[in-house]
């Protein structure tokens, strides 16, 4: 018994994972996704392909770990992957926020200096 013992779900999951890998690669080609962030997604696509083609590997691994219901191992792996990636993303966001704050401060101080140099020239302010 495997989790993908019907031919339809077997074919669908291979099709889906290949489409997923193709989509990720095309986004990298268009420079909409950086290589460094694409690696994790490509790895995920690869794992899905392997699990689809060799679904009994998942059963064996579940048996080895003492997991009674093999698909729950799949959920566990997926969940851990999502958690790890979300943590990584919030770290990236933290770094980006720090940089945005610093850039904003430097820009505002620079603008103040310009304004002090020519105080009578009317600025074309966007937000006043």
């Amino acid at each position: 018994m495997t989790i993908f013992d019907t031919p339809i779900i077997y074919a669908l999951s291979i099709l889906f994972s290949l489409a997923f890998v193709w989509f990720v690669l095309s986004q990298v080609r268009k420079r909409k996704l950086r290589e460094q962030y694409s690696l994790m997604w490509l790895l995920l696509g690869l794992v899905i392909v392997v699990v689809s083609v060799r679904s009994h590997w998942l059963d064996s691994l579940a048996y080895l770990l003492g997991i009674y219901y093999a698909p729950s191992l799949l959920f566990l792996i997926a969940l851990l992957f999502v958690f790890a990636y979300l943590l990584h993303l919030t770290m990236v966001i933290s770094k980006l926020s720090d940089r945005v704050v610093r850039l904003t401060q430097e820009l505002a101080i620079y603008q103040q200096r310009e304004h002090a140099a020519q105080p009578h020239e009317k600025e074309t302010a966007l937000h006043e």
């Binding site: 704050v101 904003t104 401060q105 103040q112 937000h127």
Partner: peptide, 16 residues
């Protein structure tokens, strides 16, 4: 007068 283009919050403003 330093005019921040958007709201940074008290910490960001004070640090400026």
């Amino acid at each position: 007068v330093i005019d921040l283009p958007f709201n940074l919050g008290i910490g960001g403003a004070m640090q400026t």
